[in-house]
Design a protein around this nucleic acid. Sequence first.
DNA 1: TCGAATATGTCAGCTATGTTGACATAAATT
DNA 2: AATTTATGTCAACATAGCTGACATATTCGA
Lengths: 177, 177
Amino acid sequence: MSHTGAINPENAEILETPMGEIDGIDFEIIELLFFAYRDFISDPDAILDTSGFGRAHHRVVHFVNREPGLTVAALLDTLKITKQSLARVLKQLIDSGYIAQVAGPEDRRQRKLFPTARGRELALALARPQSCRIADAMKGLDESGRAAVKTFLSGMINSANRSGAADQDDMKEGQRR
Amino acid sequence: MSHTGAINPENAEILETPMGEIDGIDFEIIELLFFAYRDFISDPDAILDTSGFGRAHHRVVHFVNREPGLTVAALLDTLKITKQSLARVLKQLIDSGYIAQVAGPEDRRQRKLFPTARGRELALALARPQSCRIADAMKGLDESGRAAVKTFLSGMINSANRSGAADQDDMKEGQRR
DNA sequence: TCGAATATGTCAGCTATGTTGACATAAATT
DNA sequence: AATTTATGTCAACATAGCTGACATATTCGA
């Protein structure tokens, strides 16, 4: 081995004490979130590997199925990615018949996105294992415990976000950033 | 626009009904997790943009600070990535003086990883906003609510994982897959 | 003691998914 | 008619995964 860097740097500036709750920081939850999300994501990932799609496709299929008829702009806002990034996966999903576009009835510039039967099936197949995992993790909790989990997760989300379908104003943005 | 795909495919195979709880799936929590994790990650991301590092560096710095002296193999097992993937970010962190290596005292093939003072500072700086966000989200919860959150998150994690420092056996694996 | 197994490092190339910037087109708005 | 908006698209780039192949140092077992 070449080992350009020092392997035992004369015990110089090394810290041996673990970074712990002492620092007034909740490392436990930080790590629980990391591992929980990693495993939460792994279920659909396994399915996606089969179908040749990735996580990006998963998100698109999910939200289109959750809100059929949403526009490209709305989807971009939900995902918080650029249209160029979305374009790649969306095109694949349309070409493979998972999602269909319809010109907006009022504003014909819009492209409203709808799931096909295939798209619906895929979305459900991907959500199922995740839902099972959640049900499992909720198993020991009573109603107040479950409510606490929802409160917590909601509280973790930037208030500027999420649902209500229509926010108040949202400042015009061309291409996000 | 060229529009190779049909824009209004004769109302063929389109589904207009939203995918909802009807299907016996907990979409609410699925989405809460998605948004919560996205925003949870965004705090350190903003800091990392400044220092020229990415999420991958974040994870490495975090776990090395949490368990100073862990070996490369242990880190790989925690992160569930390949050594080649780790190598890139680890090298940068070592070269920039955030992490130091020490040959294992017992087994000199091992490289034990320790944070430097710089590394500790970075890890704390990254954890702080996340901890605040968590504290905020926990604000309204009593002790049983907080316990419920931990129970839930723990339950989301694959049992094959996490801590106890030493698992039972772990099946030999050369390069993870 | 020698050969195999182990822990780590490293080269090269590929993929998925994000980013910017620039430009095109159709439809709506003023 | 001119401008703005919604969408699409091309090109180039960055990050962070992955696989495969191979090198080196060290430990371990026969």
